[in-house]
Design a protein around this nucleic acid. Structure first.
Lengths: 182, 182
DNA sequence: ACCCATCGGTTCAGCCTTGAACTAAAAGAA
DNA sequence: TTCTTTTAGTTCAAGGCTGAACCGATGGGT
């Protein structure tokens, strides 16, 4: 049964869209076979729940979101603990509006400061404060532990290798432009 | 460099949290090695961007979110195209408040109806209407095509098998209770 | 020098999600 | 039976995300 492998074809009210009237695919859809379907459901569950689990750990133990952590730790690893908003947005895989809001909140909490770029009046430089550094330092161990618990501990060394390769492959399609500078 | 493998230790302002004062880990953190770190960054990118890509396709071609699609297709595969809200919530991996709102919107659009369960006055039954069925029928091919393009086409058959196994392993840790009824 | 197109960010409005409070029905205890 | 507790959903308020409009700064063309 499933809207991915077309077992529905034999179900009640069978009416299958042959020449795509509303959608995009110009020709007959390539449905998923049973193995692909099972894989997709398992993977989709991970996509749906793992981010929430990571957020929950950081939220409860440090009072910050996963995205907050990404922003601050990225800054902490940059020269002078400083980055232009645009570069930071790329590294954090976010748009500028979102980043602007998040940095605003982090600034209010005293962990980040914004200053105008002296070499280009349009740019804004975001810098991690000492308090921000301290926050990252005390938050990192718990977060890393959670990543390890949820992702690495359940996997064998071989699976880990596969996961890496496989993730890169997928990302190449999802965003071909993405500088994989990480 | 990174807040996962502790290369930061040798960075400016080195001060490493030894006995966790604020976090949870009772002993020294088990940092990630270089391979684990690279894998995590690649995988995190996928977690961050793939859901958005799937949403975008459905939004542009059908005017619904990925979650809307999950809800309606789950109903379409259920006996009588009907499910109790609670069961639907479990299958869609969502909480009841969110589901209630989404079903409310789908109801306004004429794709779902809610009726009281005759056997238990507390329960609500959500059913897919004929229009809802039609919507799923015309949306499915384009969505499946996108899943294939983003996830399966870039992977070899062997990688696909790994992805399945690996996703299940991770889900077992993320949510041990989860009935893997899908 | 001036104008116009573009760039880098911010702000705003609308929508969605999350968690807490709330309602109604069913099950269990006295 | 009556009272209490638990279950199933909904509703409400607060906060976050997305896309569109906006604004100052820059650079390129004339």
């Amino acid at each position: 049964m499933g809207w991915y492998n077309r077992a529905m074809e034999t179900s009640a009210n069978t009416k299958v869209p042959d020449p795509g009237a509303g959608g995009s695919p110009p020709s007959a859809p390539r449905w998923l076979n049973e193995e692909e379907r099972a894989t997709w459901f398992a993977f989709a569950s991970v996509l749906l729940r793992l981010p929430g689990a990571l957020d929950a750990q950081l939220q409860h133990q440090a009072g910050i979101s996963h995205f907050d952590y990404i922003v601050m730790s990225t800054l902490s690893e940059s020269p002078g603990r400083t980055l232009r908003m645009g570069s930071l947005a790329v590294m954090a895989e976010s748009g500028l509006p979102r980043l602007s809001q998040v940095v605003g909140r982090l600034e209010k909490r005293g962990w980040v400061t914004r200053t105008a770029d002296p070499t280009d009046g349009r740019s804004t430089l975001a810098s991690l404060t000492d308090e921000g550094w301290e926050k990252v330092v005390e938050t990192a161990p718990g977060h890393v532990e959670e990543v390890r618990r949820l992702v690495f501990d359940p996997l064998t060394k071989a699976q880990l290798k596969r996961l890496n390769e496989l993730s890169r492959r997928i990302m190449i399609t999802v965003d071909p432009e993405d500088r994989c500078l990480r």
